[in-house]
């Protein structure tokens, strides 16, 4: 009867050409980390987000996920590396990114599912009505200046003019009761651009997001295969969880392997966890609170985050104590302020 270790060796050597070290668990790795630029977050994560792994940022809308991602990218572009933003719902705002300190020349932005990227701004054809283009009637008579018609022609239209003075109101026979005054209809001036109410655009949300999600997943694959991008943000923060959760787990597994090979950090922004065990770090952002520091301007939000998962945390000591270890704080919060708010 061969021992278990012999069996294991046999199986491993038989599978060696397909799967290297099939039955040996992968060694624990202490990954290099990259700072996010948010001090409380970096302190809690002992330095920042892992390099060469998938980190997941989960949270509802308006919870501060994008701020974390942009702050992380800003730290990367400042040291001269390049990164990519795969934008599934076309929500990336370059102005905000620049305000967050990102060097836009070092950020590849891929917009998925946009059919007409160069659609010009809506043109409004402002055309004056035809009557304004008609030449003014030739003035006749003395008041039209010299060289007009002879003064004797002045009397030509006089009878019409007198008739128009004597309108029906004035000439019609009337009874004793006071005449009913017809109210003058107010003349309205309508804007002459096409009424907008008829052209109601359908919100793009109603369309099924599968094509753009598929595009985004393909693009991320390509970027990871190319290598050299220090961070790839897959922004699915605007997608409903029922769509995102249908991405096969094999995709995330593949991304994890590719990220490890090319040493790029994948940042996944979703509303619901989807990468499961492929994610090295999961940050769950809780609903934020609005800051009301000023009466006149919006000043920002207070984000709350919980570290839902962190693999391979470094244990300082090899000896396992009998008591439960003091757990590190895994819930923290910070203020994200708008760019127009001064330093506080």
């Amino acid at each position: 009867m061969p021992s278990a270790s012999v069996l294991r060796l046999q199986i491993e050597s038989a599978l060696a050409h397909k799967i290297p070290s099939a039955l040996t668990p992968a060694p624990k790795m202490v990954r290099p980390i990259a700072a996010t630029g948010i001090e409380p977050l970096d302190n809690a994560m002992r330095g920042g987000l892992p390099v060469g792994a998938i980190s997941e940022l989960i949270g509802p809308e308006c919870s501060g996920r994008t701020s974390v991602a942009l702050s992380f990218l800003a730290q990367i572009t400042v040291i001269g590396k390049v990164c990519a933003w795969v934008d599934v719902s076309n929500t990336f705002d370059p102005a905000t990114a620049a305000a967050a300190g990102i060097n836009l020349a070092r950020l590849l932005w891929v917009r998925c599912g946009v059919s007409h990227p160069d659609a010009a701004r809506a043109r409004r054809d402002f055309v004056l009505p035809d009557r304004y283009f008609a030449p003014p009637p030739v003035k006749r008579g003395l008041h039209g200046g010299g060289f007009g018609s002879h003064p004797r022609n002045e009397v030509k239209g006089i009878s019409d003019a007198v008739a128009s003075l004597l309108q029906q109101e004035t000439t019609a026979p009337r009874c004793a009761e006071p005449p009913r005054r017809t109210r003058l209809t107010q003349k309205t001036f309508e804007p002459n651009y096409p009424p907008s109410s008829t052209i109601r655009r359908q919100p793009s949300r109603s369309a099924k997001p599968w094509p753009r999600m598929e595009q985004a997943l393909h693009v991320t694959d390509q970027l990871l295969q190319c290598g050299g991008f220090s961070a790839v943000v897959l922004d699915m923060g605007g997608m409903a969880p029922e769509f995102v959760s249908r991405v096969p787990l094999a995709t995330w597994f593949r991304y994890r392997a590719a990220a490890e090979r090319t040493q790029s950090s994948i940042l996944l922004m979703t509303q619901h966890p989807c990468a499961k065990s492929s994610a090295e770090l999961v940050l769950q952002l809780l609903p934020a609170e609005a800051l009301c520091d000023e009466i006149t301007v919006f000043t920002g939000i207070k984000s709350h985050v919980e570290m839902a998962r962190q693999r391979f945390t470094q244990i300082a000591d090899n000896i396992l104590p009998l008591r439960k270890l003091p757990q590190s704080v895994n819930a923290l919060s910070w203020h994200s302020r708008t760019s127009w708010t001064g330093r506080r």
Binding site: G37, I38, E61, G64, T66, S67, L70, S71, A74, Q75, T77, V78, G80, V82, N90, T91, F92, D93, A95, T96, A97, A99, A100, G101, I102, N103, A105, R106, V114, R200, R201, P203, S204, R205, G237, G238, G300, I301, W334, H335, S336, R337, T338, S339, R343, R344
Partner: peptide, 25 residues
């Protein structure tokens, strides 16, 4: 990019925007 253009990361965390394209009614 061939050369570095100096960009300074802001000292405090900036709140960012997610644009909706096209804007929803």
């Amino acid at each position: 990019p061939a050369r570095d253009s100096a960009t300074i990361a802001p000292s405090q965390t900036q709140l960012s925007m997610r644009k909706l394209r096209p804007p929803e009614t």
